[in-house]
Design a protein around this nucleic acid. Structure first.
Lengths: 118, 118
DNA sequence: CTTATATTTCGTTTACTAACGAAGTGATAT
DNA sequence: ATATCACTTCGTTAGTAAACGAAATATAAG
């Protein structure tokens, strides 16, 4: 099966949004559910869900259902060598800008039972 | 100087357009002027010029004036390690899809003195 | 110096993407 | 069963990006 134009751009499109980069860097620290990410990014739940579906479709993350929660995590078996390469050297590709540093601090003290459900 | 959000996305945004990927892969073979690229991509000259300015701003290419022509080439001294990494393994990051294979054939037989000026 | 050629910049239209809230789905808790 | 919580999907709006042609700039040629 030959490569397509879409294959070539999909990877980069997924990485072209600052909120998606923030999500990837957060998931590097630990897996998170949608409402935890929503709390940190201060976006609508539906927006975060959409970002996650784009990251998932591109192959960067996978989802794991856990009761009423859906946990997202860095894909341990990426479908593409380029994705593996980016994920294994994420700090090289995505620098720790101010928002990312701030995000990392926030997810330390987050408890989904408190943050979610309000 | 700390990294900014824009720094993080600029690289990937530049690589998010199929025509810009085609340009990079063409320049990998040889340096080209705007009207040669225009001929291959079948776009308006102004559109190609814009794509090249985006690639230049991101650090992927540089320009060299040669009389009435402006030659574009892969940046031999990229300002960013990530750019260097992408450029040195361009075939890993950008697969040879049908359009790219076709482009490479076309630029073999192109003569700017014939193609430009009509 | 005027004309022609190569390219860039500008203004506009069109297409895409991100954001939101509302409605729908599925699981848990009462 | 019904209500609640987490999430997704849908429809809409707003902002962004790509495309074009026309006008401006710069260099080469006559």
């Amino acid at each position: 099966m030959p490569a397509t134009i879409k294959d070539n751009t999909k990877l980069f499109k997924a990485l072209s949004d600052p909120n998606r980069l923030r999500i990837l860097k957060m998931l590097q620290t630990k897996s998170l559910c949608v409402c935890e990410i929503t709390e940190v990014l201060k976006l609508a739940t539906s927006t975060v869900s959409k970002h996650l579906s784009i990251l998932r479709y591109a192959g960067f993350v996978i989802e794991q259902k856990e009761g009423k929660w859906v946990n997202y995590l860095i894909n341990p078996k990426p479908p593409d060598q380029r994705i593996s390469s980016v994920l294994s050297t994420l700090d090289f590709w995505i620098a720790d800008d101010n928002s990312i540093i701030s995000d990392k601090q926030k997810i330390q003290n987050i408890d989904r039972n408190i943050v979610c459900g309000r």
